[in-house]
Nucleic acid binder design. Structure first.
Lengths: 348, 348
DNA sequence: TCTCAGACAGAAAGCGCTTTCTATCGGGGC
DNA sequence: GCCCCGATAGAAAGCGCTTTCTGTCTGAGA
């Protein structure tokens, strides 16, 4: 029925071992033999049996990329960059074709663990975890345990945009400097003269949420300005939309709103407009991430640009072992303040 | 080193066969035995060896979802829905845990084929191809061949938003009715009184592009209105931005622009604004897909809503065999015209 | 009491590949 | 002319699981 290595070997009049060696290219094979084998492979339309190969070699060519929300371009961009980098590295290695796949956890710790187990089952070559994590100690411990098991089994683990596991110095980590980015953003607002700043934060128990909030508060504290109202919600536009009403109810004299990210900011803008408030004349709005649509918002969004593409690509290379991770802790990826039309000095 | 089935068997004082049966739940095992096995699994922290299992069973628990661009929410939403549905169906079956993974082809035919081969290697349980395909006969034939091979090997193949392979009646297919959607949209514009309508199309050789363009032209033809300028480009905002200049150069008196999709429409809006043209007073703009950000554009985008989530979920169920595909051709998924602020009657 | 069906459990044969460990074959060095 | 080495190729032993084929044992029916 299906063509096997043995069939190819028979056709090429060599042993299965030789065919395997030709296909994996890690053992000297005479050019003429190689050619004969390759021809047989072609003629028989042979496709390697992945599971058999993985079983025998005790490793597979799967690389898993876990993301919190695949429908969010924030993750899409990073994942895409990682896949691209992985493909690029793989194409330069004989028989190194990797199956880079992205798994959508939907932000659920349970699904994250499930995916990790599934990848562990497959003896994945590498796993990249993208995006902030839940700060629940139990889940953190469970994840750390899984990652340790994976690493132990030879799977390369890379964190991208997620704080390193404490005490685990040997998994590569890329972390966005959310704190500094948020601080710069709030400083910008303070510099414009804003003193009543509302904040629409992400889910309360996520690292990203906390870090951005901390940066925001640090800026406020440094300037001696009191913290305005803060509302937590998911990282989506609806959250921004709903939170705005709450923010305004708590402080009707708000002159600026900082959102957890650009998507949320869009919701904030919509809600503000619905109430007849103009941006930035009545209220300034700022986002975070600088996703592609942010420049097209009206007015264009002031935000903090994160080098999503670069970070994803780097994570991909790290996962392929094509780049050495720094030995002294995680790589800090800085964000860059991008000032656009959605922020301005508050009305006289 | 690593714990194997045999270790678990030894610990539970049963044969490996029994452990396997407990884990796969498809053979009667006494409750007490089952419990003993499960405990052993737990105590030893056993993780099934996927490759070994797949090899022996000649099938794996991988489900591949191929998308053209993972950074585009259009695909993200569908992929997310599909993964969700797959997870849901899987959780209802003992040992039916599936590893739903999304693969990003970047619209490249070569990568599409590569992924298909990789998935074939893994003996994937199912493959879902999302989004329109290239219309190159050679690539079409290559893809059709691969899909036939996959189906033959027992992999379930589902097309979502991609026209069925001619002559292949047994792979399930969900197709968006892009033609009708596009026709409705252009009819809406015509109804408002527009007679000079520019069109920013997607890449020339894609099915989606062609179908939308055909619907647009059909509406024009039915109304006896001459076709305005048309420019092709990728499905991104930049394309819309650049195409707008071209469109305006070809016909400075354009009163409306139809874009290939919402993302492109955003680019069109930006370009129009940069030239000091107001939307919809000077020029009406329409998109397609109704992605989440479209309602937040200013003005909100008139577009054609595609039930991306539903379609993705359905594709997922089809891939799991949890829903029977219709025997009489593909399922046509209709789009719904959504009229918002970006379109209005042309100026006097 | 004896038989037999039904419910479980075990033995063992692979699944298709990788990878040591062994040949085998020409040559160059002495 | 002999020995040893480098370059290739083959033999064969698994990798860890699934599954068919056989039991074994229990209780119901006769």
């Amino acid at each position: 029925m299906t063509v096997t290595l043995a069939d190819v070997a028979a056709r090429a009049r060599v042993s299965p071992a030789t065919v395997s060696r030709v296909l994996n290219g890690n053992y000297p094979v005479a050019a003429s033999t190689r050619e004969r084998v390759l021809r047989a492979v072609d003629e028989l339309d042979y496709v390697l049996n992945g599971p058999a190969s993985s079983l025998a070699a005790a490793t597979s060519d799967l690389v898993g990329v876990l993301v919190n929300d695949i429908a969010d371009p924030f993750f899409g961009i990073m994942a895409s960059a990682a896949q691209g980098a992985i493909g690029e590295v793989a194409s330069g290695r004989a028989g190194g074709e990797k199956l880079a796949v992205v798994c959508n956890t939907g932000g659920s710790p349970a699904r994250e663990l499930t995916y990790l187990t599934l990848l562990q089952r497959q003896r994945a070559a590498a796993v990249i975890l993208m995006g902030g994590s839940l700060e629940d100690p139990e889940h953190l411990a469970a994840t750390a345990g899984k990652l340790a098991k994976l690493a132990e089994a030879g799977t390369r683990v890379v964190l991208c945009g997620r704080p390193p596991v404490p005490g685990d110095a040997n998994t590569a980590a890329l972390v966005f400097d959310n704190r500094t980015g948020a601080r710069l953003l709030t400083e910008h607002l303070l510099g414009l003269g804003h003193r009543r700043i509302g904040y629409v934060a992400g889910p309360a128990d996520r690292t990203t949420t906390r870090h951005r909030l901390e940066g925001h508060r640090a800026a406020l504290a440094a300037a001696g300005v009191a913290e305005g109202p803060t509302v937590h919600g998911p990282y989506d536009r609806r959250s921004g939309h709903e939170a705005t009403a709450e923010l305004l109810a708590r402080d009707p004299d708000l002159t600026a709103v900082v959102a957890a990210n650009d998507t949320v900011a869009l919701g904030v803008c919509a809600a503000l407009r619905e109430r007849g408030l103009s941006i930035p004349d009545d209220v300034s709005v700022a986002g975070f991430d600088d996703l592609p649509f942010s420049v097209d918002a009206v007015p264009a969004l002031t935000t903090v640009r994160l080098p999503l593409h670069d970070a994803g690509a780097r994570a991909g290379r790290l996962a392929m072992g094509a780049e050495e991770p720094p030995t002294d802790g995680p790589v800090a990826v800085p964000g860059e303040l991008v000032v656009r039309g959605s922020t301005a000095a508050p009305r006289g």
